[in-house]
Design a binder for these strands. Structure first.
Length: 434
RNA sequence: GGCGGGAUGCUGGAGAUUGGUUUAACAGGCUUGUCUUGAAAACAAGUGUACCAGAAAUGGUACCGUAGGUUCGAAUCCUACUCCCGCCGCCA
């Protein structure tokens, strides 16, 4: 949600931002409803003020007749206020509706573009591996080594599921270990205060994967993402598409002390996605599935620090990628390809030699105060002593399925086996699979 | 799933028995000031959030789990819901 004051003072800017994001909104209607709504509030409150005054007089009055008169007068006032109340309720509803339709505005430095085709490749890192044989697709390799079983998953659960078996399962745990070791090594359990010099001291967390509707809405993924989310009707709960959703929601309605910011979490959870808009896309294998595990970074930070924090997250993602020695490129997402909550976003795409293309493995977004405002997450500013909205930043540490794909394709050997990346060997106990 | 208890401000904790200056007694915490070489102690003062109007000072309104209701007026009465804490059943 945006600040209504910003919209009132700067409708042009909001309009432009929405256009950049390819989102159509009805600003004129919103501003009209806002005005009407405020007028009604004013009228209603004046009435209440009058009522409060009279009402406090009543017990002091001695004569019987006078008292009755006043009470009758009050009843008349009530009729009016009931009518206004009804109006206000309607206005308020429409106002909230319209407000929620407005996406977060892209930051100034975000390239303007219509869709993913206009994303900007910032840099390519790492040497693409040279093979003295024709590199295979990860599915082919993993079928031979019995690492990924999509067929039986289809039998048991339907399309877009997979069993990770044997070495693949071990690599999942290895990746998680590596992520937690890298990002939480300076984490200090008793205080959990930010470390000096911005050292990675993410608080490890395993969040719930089911989430109440109002909090899912607060994270900003429902307005234009409803079809993508699993909903358990009987229990009125959403399944998270990423642990970002339940980690962000964790501090709803709270006020942080300034000194605990940035508050960084490293979460691990299963993620559930309906992939409703992706019929026919990536139907093979485990690149796009309904369920996968992911280690995710999340930060609540001071507003003026969020861009720095976003860069830090990108740096951490690159660090995790470099550790695996997998070639990748960094892509800056253009305005038209940003989701509702994001003001800026970078993806990391890993090189997949078996498919001769880059595919997204990481994503980090700066959601500025968009989620914080909806979820009412604030901090107390040390100067003004007033609560202000925090900014939220999220980013992938490792998305298991896709990272696994990248490992399999980049580390494949001529004999059909897979070398385990050096950094993972101490966790897997195996140096190669197959 | 069955039964019982509860939800109040930064925290603890009154308010239940008579609905009417209760934003809320009392205590603690925190902030500031006095005293002191400094600190502690003592003493004094202050101590919510949101919205609306306003340049500001300020004024108004709302908020005692949530949503409704009764009433001129509700933390206090009524209804539904949510969450928490016990006991039983089931269970990784």
């Amino acid at each position: 949600m945006l600040d209504i004051k910003l919209i009132r003072q700067n409708p042009q800017k909001v309009q432009e931002g929405c256009e950049k994001k390819q989102v159509k909104i009805n600003l004129g209607r919103l501003l009209w409803v806002d005005k009407k709504r405020r007028q009604t509030i004013q009228a209603l409150e004046d009435m209440k003020s009058q009522k409060n005054k009279t009402t406090s007089q009543i017990p002091k009055i001695e004569e019987e007749g006078e008292k009755e008169k006043l009470i009758l007068k009050m009843r008349e006032l009530d009729k009016n206020s009931d009518r206004l109340n009804g109006n206000l309720k309607q206005l308020q509803e429409e106002f909230n509706d319209l407000m929620r339709q407005i996406p977060n505005l892209p930051l100034e430095n975000v390239p303007v573009g219509k869709n993913e085709k206009e994303n900007v490749v910032l840099r390519e890192i790492g040497e693409k591996p040279e093979f003295n044989f024709t590199p295979k697709d990860y599915l082919e390799i993993s079928e031979k080594l019995d690492l990924i079983d999509v067929k039986r998953a289809a039998k048991v659960s339907g399309s877009r599921f997979g069993y990770l078996k044997g070495g693949a399962a071990l690599i999942e745990f290895a990746l998680i270990n590596l992520a937690f070791e890298t990002l939480s090594k300076d984490y200090n359990p008793p205080t959990a205060l930010p470390a000096e010099g911005g050292a990675p001291n993410f608080i490890p967390v395993i969040p719930p994967v089911m989430l109440k509707p109002e909090l899912m809405e607060g994270m900003g993924y429902v307005e234009r993402g409803r079809e993508e989310i699993y909903y358990l009707k009987k229990d009125k709960l959403y399944l998270v598409g990423t642990s970002e959703q339940s980690i962000g929601a964790m501090h709803a309605d709270e006020i942080f002390e300034e000194k605990v910011l940035p508050k960084r979490y490293l979460g691990f959870s299963t993620c559930f996605r309906r992939e409703a808009g992706a019929y026919g896309r990536d139907t093979k294998g485990i690149l796009r599935v309904h369920q996968f595990d992911k280690a995710e970074m999340f930060s609540f930070c001071r507003p003026e620090k969020s861009q720095e924090e976003h860069q830090f997250f990108l740096k951490m993602e690159e660090k995790l990628m470099k550790a695996l020695k997998i070639p990748y490129r960094v892509v800056q997402i253009c305005s038209g390809d940003l989701g509702d909550p994001a003001a800026a976003k970078y993806d990391i795409e890993a090189w997949l030699p078996g498919q001769n293309q880059y595919r997204e493995t990481h994503s980090t977004s700066n959601c500025t105060d968009y989620q914080a405002r909806r979820l009412n997450i604030r901090y107390r500013d040390s100067k003004t002593e007033k609560p202000e909205f925090v900014h939220t930043v999220n980013g992938t540490a490792y998305a298991i399925g896709r990272t696994l794909i990248a490992i399999i394709e980049n580390y494949q050997q001529k004999d059909g086996s897979i070398k385990v990346p050096n950094v993972l060997q101490k966790y897997t106990r195996f140096k190669k699979i197959g």
